[in-house]
């Protein structure tokens, strides 16, 4: 089984070296660099004033651009169509009649999506963090790197499940989920936001980057949706979420029927 997953993983990586995909990766890496560079260029050193405020702005931007936007978009593009792409090209049946073929394809593509998204995110991060000139480049780079390493598998797992639940509308469902849950509900200061990846990542950012938001009473009112649990708690929650979601995707896939040729037959 592990060998089968590995075979799919290697095959997907080989197939990924195409100009469109490479262009996407370069775009994903370049976008945060471009935005941070633009802000840095627009806001001159004098206007940056208090270093702490500039640092906070940069951390929020880096978080929003890399562990959120780049990994979300990257995993959405590669993970959610894991099954639908096979169904659309009618190749699913070739894979499904192999021993544990469906499961191997699902997990192999999941791993390929995660490992395909992480490099551009880290490249972008490695260029964007020094560009931000926050004064503690290494610390922020290390914090963001850990966030990327958690964010990519977590979002990929969510999109993987959505792709299995509704393969024909996987992208639409993934975008809807992202907008509703990760960008809206995650900001609601209630128990429900603890079920979102965004909440966990946001809380970890505050902890690992030692943001001063929590010490300011007025800002605390605005940012009340940050968790107060220790970082290990959030990390554990994300790892459990990743394992549960990938397991659920496998179970769901094995239970579902994806008949081919029925259109011309029944």
């Amino acid at each position: 089984m592990i060998g089968n997953v590995g075979a799919v993983f290697v095959f997907e990586w080989k197939r990924a070296f195409t100009w469109p995909r490479m262009t996407w990766s370069i775009g994903l890496a370049a976008f945060p660099v471009f935005i941070i560079g633009l802000v840095r260029w627009t806001v001159n050193a004098e206007a940056r004033g208090d270093g702490e405020i500039w640092r906070t702005i940069c951390i929020v931007m880096l978080f929003g651009l890399i562990p959120m936007l780049v990994t979300m978009l990257g995993t959405l593009l590669w993970s959610s169509p894991a099954i639908s792409s096979e169904l659309e090209r009618r190749s699913w049946v070739y894979l499904a009649v192999r021993p544990n073929g469906g499961t191997a394809v699902l997990l192999g593509k999941y791993l390929a999506a995660v490992t395909w998204v992480i490099p551009p995110a880290l490249i972008g991060l490695t260029i964007a963090v020094p560009l931000a000139a926050t004064g503690d480049t290494w610390r922020i780079w290390w914090a963001m790197t850990r966030l990327v390493l958690l964010s990519a598998p977590a979002y990929a797992a969510i999109y993987l499940v959505l792709g299995v639940v509704m393969p024909r509308r996987a992208m639409v469902l993934a975008v809807a989920y992202t907008l509703i849950f990760e960008l809206l509900i995650s900001f609601i200061p209630a128990v429900i936001n603890k079920f979102t990846v965004q909440f966990r990542l946001r809380s970890l950012t505050v902890e690992w980057c030692d943001l001063s938001l929590l010490t300011n009473e007025q800002q605390w009112m605005v940012m009340a949706q940050f968790g107060t649990e220790p970082p290990w708690h959030h990390v554990t929650a994300l790892i459990v979420l990743i394992l549960c979601l990938t397991g659920f995707a496998v179970i769901l896939l094995r239970a579902k029927e994806f008949p081919m040729s029925v259109e011309s037959d029944a």
Partner: peptide
Amino acid sequence: FRRMGYCPGGEGMYSEVSGYDWVCFLQRLH
């Protein structure tokens, strides 16, 4: 599935890879 071979009616192969890579990949899944 280890004892069964299936050739479906539709096309559905990966057009961008070679026939050898495709068949080889499917055997790796065995």
